[in-house]
Design a protein around this nucleic acid. Structure first.
Lengths: 154, 154
DNA sequence: TCAATATGTTTGCTATATCAAATATAGTTT
DNA sequence: AAACTATATTTGATATAGCAAACATATTGA
């Protein structure tokens, strides 16, 4: 059991963390080559807000793995940086209608283009079969994480 | 290209992000069942600091995917919460000797035990072959992220 | 209609991520 | 020894993560 650490860098968790971090760094750099004042997280929220305006903030949060607080603050920043504007929704005054500015519309196009390029480039020489295998493993892992305990530890 | 979003939740990136987030939540909950005032990130740093004291803070950062600033602040917190104490290293006064307190030593044992249980449980019904397949894919992805550009975008 | 409950968002607090700049010390060169 | 360079860590600023509490509005049920 004392080799927990020697093993750590060979675990699947290490590989997954490393993979996602490298991808995020890559994607942020590439995004900054066309837009300088936006993060990749904000960019994804921006796409959802504009392309699927029927979604509530909390639904966007679920789709992007962010909690409500984060979505609120990211939208604030997008408004501050002039990508979006926002008005209270008169049908349900708890929610908002969020609209893109001109800058926001232009940005969306650039984001979609660069995202498509990024995906192609990062998935170069990876087959669909490999992608499916990995998704299956990740799904098993997710299921195992969420299984209720039968006994022993909580 | 307009289906970037419809596709988003079916991409490998979505699966990876989801997998790692679910695992982190799972691991944090399980850790909190034995230790209440420590995060999983701090716990990993604590293990490295204590089990491999020859490592510098920046080396620990590399091994745990954290930058120097994060490691500094995490160690500060571990000291504040009485897991560690720290003295200037007289051989190289830029660095520190970091030592576990009694609380720290007890915690390390608990962390190793719970970590081993977590890994077993989360990898239940996942074969070594599947693990290797996934690691291979992630490695390809990492390599692709780091390839220098030949032409077009930077 | 009023109270209770549910839903959607915001705010507050603390931890971590990222980048850049600042410090401190070591090691090297002239 | 002084200047230069390299290494190790810290600090500062801003963004995001996660949780809990607060707010605001809607909906439901008595």
């Amino acid at each position: 059991m004392d080799d927990i650490l020697e093993l750590h860098h060979r675990t699947i968790f290490y590989s997954i963390e490393r993979g996602i971090k490298e991808y995020r760094k890559f994607a942020q750099k590439r995004l900054n080559s066309v837009l300088t004042d936006i993060t990749i997280d904000q960019a994804l929220v921006l796409l959802y807000v504009i392309k699927q305006p029927q979604l509530s903030q909390s639904e966007i949060g679920s789709l992007t793995f962010k909690d409500n607080a984060s979505v609120t603050r990211m939208i604030e920043l997008l408004i501050k940086n002039n990508y979006l504007s926002r008005y209270i929704n008169q049908e349900d005054r708890r929610t908002y209608n969020i609209l893109p500015t001109h800058k926001g519309k232009v940005a969306v196009k650039k984001i979609m283009e660069i995202t498509e390029l990024n995906r192609k480039r990062v998935l170069k020489n990876i087959t669909n079969k490999e992608l499916e295998q990995t998704k299956r493993l990740l799904n098993k892992l997710i299921v195992n994480c969420n299984e209720t305990d039968h006994g022993q530890h909580i």
